[in-house]
Amino acid sequence: MYTVDLHAHTRFFHGRRSLGDRYDPLGVRLLTELAARRGLDGVATTNHDYYTPFDPAPDVATLPGIEITTDRGHVLVVGPDPPRATKPGALSPAEAVALAHDRDCAAIVAHPFRNSTVRELEDVPFDAIEVNGKHPRSQPLVEALAAERDLPLVGGSDAHYPFEVGRAYTVVEADRLTPESVVDAIRDGRVSARVSRSKGNRLLRRGYRAVHSRKHVIDAFEEPTPGVGQPPGEPDED
């Protein structure tokens, strides 16, 4: 039995590829150090539309992954051989899932109730649906969706800053922790989602709510910019 955060990022420099590339080695080190402190056995590095192999961490397994921006929302791809890069918005969810399966990876619906209509697609063979740590109040909706689609639930923090890791995570029933064993466990339904209810995470959610409430007041007096989505952590902090 292992605990794994299946959705985490090693950077917060979106749109600044060269700056982010320089930060990634430090970002993954901070991410895994905090994951170890929180008792996790592994963390998947699922950066937006690119995958970089990282050196193994001493105490926490780093699992390969990528978060693909499809034309309907985000799809997590986790496994031994994720694609190195994808063009944002170029793939449909079905194409992203086919790409994942061709590379022996699991395809997961990321944050299905935030900036996504992927959940509306009934004929795409996803492997799991995510309970996202940034809006845990949507968990009952995600559970109902997973039951309707007969898919397992996994958990991921969607951490863009290292201190967010482990806000949600996945319990994986396996004899050993490898990318292959995680994919097998997801497809066999030997996984379950957990949301951290620790005091630290409760305080973090309150802080995010206060920031977002103030931002919404400011945004009400500003003209919205077409095509600009919500920043990481924006929606539905519990």
Score class of each variant (00 low, 15 high):
L40E: 11
E180I: 10
R202A: 14
L145R: 09
S192E: 15
E234I: 04
G42H: 06
T10P: 03
R17M: 10
H212W: 12
R197F: 05
G233F: 07
E173Y: 01
A193Y: 07
L99C: 13
P224R: 10
L153N: 02
V191N: 07
S213Y: 05
P93K: 09
D158Q: 11
R114W: 14
H135P: 00
V43R: 09
Y161I: 08
A44P: 03
G155N: 06
R202E: 14
N115V: 13
H101K: 14
V75M: 04
D123H: 13
S213L: 14
V75T: 11
A144D: 15
G156D: 01
A100Y: 08
R194S: 12
E234R: 10
V183K: 00
V77R: 11
K134M: 10
A106P: 01
S192N: 03
I108T: 05
T170P: 06
K215A: 15
P56S: 09
L76N: 08
P53N: 07
V182N: 07
V109I: 15
H9V: 00
D236E: 12
V4A: 04
L76M: 03
S181P: 02
D158F: 03
G65E: 04
S92Y: 04
G39N: 05
L153D: 03
V182F: 11
E237I: 13
G73K: 10
R206I: 13
R137A: 15
H48R: 00
P235S: 14
P80E: 10
F126W: 10
A57C: 06
V4S: 10
D123Y: 11
A220C: 04
R137V: 15
T69Q: 02
T46R: 06
A57D: 13
D127S: 07
G233L: 07
P88I: 06
L34E: 14
L91N: 07
P83N: 11
F13H: 15
V97L: 10
K87N: 08
G79C: 10
D41E: 02
T62D: 03
R103L: 15
H212G: 05
L145H: 06
D219N: 14
Y2F: 15
D55Y: 02
L19N: 00
A159T: 12
V182P: 00
D41P: 06
A61E: 12
P232E: 01
A220V: 03
R38K: 15
R11N: 02
H9I: 07
A85Y: 08
E164C: 07
K199D: 13
P93Y: 08
D158R: 00
T170C: 02
A220I: 05
G207E: 09
D81K: 04
A107N: 02
R190Y: 05
P83V: 10
